[in-house]
Design a protein around this nucleic acid. Structure first.
Length: 574
RNA sequence: CGGGCUGUGGCGCAGUUUGGUCAGCGCACCUGCUUUGGGAGCAGGGGGUCGCCGGUUCGAAUCCGGCCAGCCCGACCA
């Protein structure tokens, strides 16, 4: 490839609306252009990277016995109604109609379609199966952001395991777990596998692959002492015991003007330290008002509420709704004596006595509350968010909280979809059993952005050799000098013959422009060919990562680069 | 969906407060000459319904109203 004929629209200035590093560099480097919010054109350079990522994924999927298919993205809405996800996915699901008025949806994952195909299987002898595809998914994200990190149309590798029993599912899950480790390592991503909530997709065991990055949107909890690691949506921690003193009787007391946990604690330190208060939140859980109880100094983790209730959606009640339900404003709310509204409480409140909580009358609270005696808790669940420094439940070491990008997710789905779509096989006893499914995803463009987030410097992107748009750039200084150009062209040809992915920068630009572009675009190795070096029969090799340089005789170049590139390809990140 | 901000040649911006003299600057682009190991210089040149619609006015990028789009911060996911 000659740079002079390539469409590589690099920009000198940062795009004004790009905040995230990967967004900025991918736009500046001419890899992508935005069409609309969450909608990006992938330019030639971007496509080269994308294809290399896809190829790594494909190789590793094939290596665990995966069979590649391509399924439609346009689905009849009825299919999504049958799996119950038409409503469950809510606004995130793109919905449309055809000319006849038939309702359609654009696939956001494709468990349904795979389950329909799986219904053609009829014997346990046909199992296990691993099926996968790599193509477009649509999600009507409420807030696309950060370039390729969160978009509405993207490429996903989604795979599905089909098994007759739990051990089979476990095996398929483990195969994917190992394959994902190899896939991310090969593309130069350091990932942490963490326990996660499986969310609206249903299922049980669920593991996310997270790349540590400030640009990420997930909060991860890891133990500094043992191997415990989990998404905050799922993470748990130990708590120090709180001394409540002997149980007492419940008593109303006036609290004029005290609206927050902190205010109340400050005014009544004897009975209302935050850990002695019960925080009462009003939520609508699938439309049903529900009281959510937490210790005063704890925060609700909404995903845990979703998981505990099995609801599709939860939202905090509005102030007017709260007044209608409880007769008081936030600040004086409580669950004591409340009837007709279900109460779900965090397990940290279990067995607590002498607690303080709102009396559902503005400016009044109760003290001496015995949770077991005074509150009708319908469901106990872990609902609170873990915070940094709390002790690990396994080893009591302090927990760490950090931000990351979710690049992959694997989970054990179960039989929800196979039952909905009649995907049953007969086992060896002739009994019909629903196929047990696992579901596994990788976001291709998100992985690309994550690589940039974690591998760049102030000059630009530093691509790992394995996914670089080109492995080598041959930079010609004085492209107008026939002898220099001829030498560079000869080098370019020999490198390509050796199987390297090379671009020849033959543009009639000044050296500074070419160096800056090569570094911005992030090509791992640069060979600089100039008249000065050629006089002595040498060229210069610059390694993008670290910018180290060495002089090479023209005859040594092919061997040296072949060695470097092959090391890079194999080194899972180069 | 709530909150904050922004829409002016391909990119980055000024101009809007105080309506006219305003369509401008840098980069990029085209032509010529010089230059050539870290984003060159000189000269000449092309390109913009100032997000859209409506209003006020003799006159609107600028004032008013409505709409649309994009970015960032909070609730969702690969």
């Amino acid at each position: 490839m000659r740079w002079s004929h390539a469409f590589i629209p690099t920009l000198r200035d940062d795009p004004a609306d790009a905040e995230a590093v990967s967004h900025r560099l991918l736009v500046r480097g001419g890899f992508i252009r935005q069409l609309a919010a969450g909608s990006y054109s992938i330019l030639p350079l971007g496509q080269r990277v994308r294809l290399k990522i896809i190829e790594i994924i494909r190789q590793e999927m094939d290596a665990i016995g995966g069979q590649e298919v391509v399924l439609p993205t346009l689905h009849p809405a009825d299919i999504w109604r049958r799996s119950d996800r038409y409503d469950l996915m809510g606004e995130n699901l793109f919905k449309l109609k055809d000319r006849k008025g038939v309702e359609l949806v654009l696939g956001m994952t494709e468990e349904e379609i795979f389950a329909i195909l799986a219904s053609e299987l009829s014997s346990y002898r046909d199992l296990p199966q691993i099926w996968y595809q790599i193509h477009t998914k649509f999600r009507d994200e409420p807030r696309p952001k950060s370039g390729l990190l969160r978009v509405r149309e993207f490429t996903m590798k989604d795979s599905y395991t089909l098994d007759v029993d739990r051990p089979g599912l476990d095996a398929g899950f483990d195969l994917h777990h190992a394959a994902y480790r190899r896939i991310f390592a090969r593309m130069g991503l350091e990932t942490t596998d963490v326990q996660a909530s499986s969310g609206a997709m249903g299922g049980t065991e669920s593991v996310e692959f997270i790349v540590r990055s400030e640009a990420g949107e997930d909060w991860i909890v890891t133990c500094t002492g043992c191997g415990y690691r989990a998404n905050v949506e799922k993470a748990v921690s130990a708590l120090d015991a709180v001394d409540d003193g002997p149980p007492g009787s419940i008593e109303r007391f006036p609290t004029p003007g005290l609206r927050t946990i902190a205010d109340l604690a400050a005014a009544h330190p004897d009975v209302a330290a935050p850990e002695r208060q019960i925080k009462t939140l009003v939520y609508f859980v699938d439309g049903e008002p529900t009281l959510v109880l937490l210790r005063g100094d704890h925060e609700l983790q909404e995903q845990k509420l979703l998981d505990a209730t099995g609801a599709a959606a939860v939202r905090p009640a509005h102030p007017e709704e709260i007044r209608d339900l409880l007769g008081a404003d936030p600040g004086s709310l409580g669950a004591v004596g409340v009837e007709g509204i279900p109460v779900i409480a965090d397990v940290a409140l279990r067995g607590r006595v002498n607690m303080t909580t709102g009396a559902n009358e503005d400016d009044w609270h109760y003290r001496g509350v015995d949770v077991a005696r005074d509150i009708d808790v319908g469901v106990w669940a872990d609902l609170r968010s873990v915070t940094s420094g709390e002790p690990c439940v396994d080893c009591a070491s302090p927990l760490e909280l950090w931000k990351g990008i979710e690049v992959g997710h694997i989970f054990k789905l179960g039989t929800k979809f196979s039952e909905a779509f009649g995907a049953y096989v007969q086992d060896e006893d002739g009994v019909n059993r629903p196929i047990i499914m696992g579901s596994y995803g990788i976001g291709v463009e998100r992985a690309m952005a994550a690589i940039v987030e974690t591998s760049h410097d102030d000059r630009g992107i530093i691509w790992p050799v394995s996914v670089a748009p080109f492995e080598v750039v041959v930079t010609v200084l004085r492209a107008d000098d026939p002898a220099t150009l001829a030498a560079a062209e000869d080098l370019d040809r020999r490198l390509r013959d050796a199987g390297l992915d090379v671009i020849l920068d033959d543009r009639p630009e000044r050296p500074g422009v070419k160096f800056a572009d090569a570094e911005l675009v992030g090509i791992p190795f640069r060979i600089t060919v100039g008249p000065r070096g050629l006089e002595g029969g040498s060229v210069e090799l610059t390694v993008r990562r670290g910018m180290g340089t060495e002089e090479l005789g023209v005859d040594e170049v092919v061997a040296r680069l072949t060695e470097l590139v092959e090391d890079g390809r194999a080194a899972a990140g180069g």
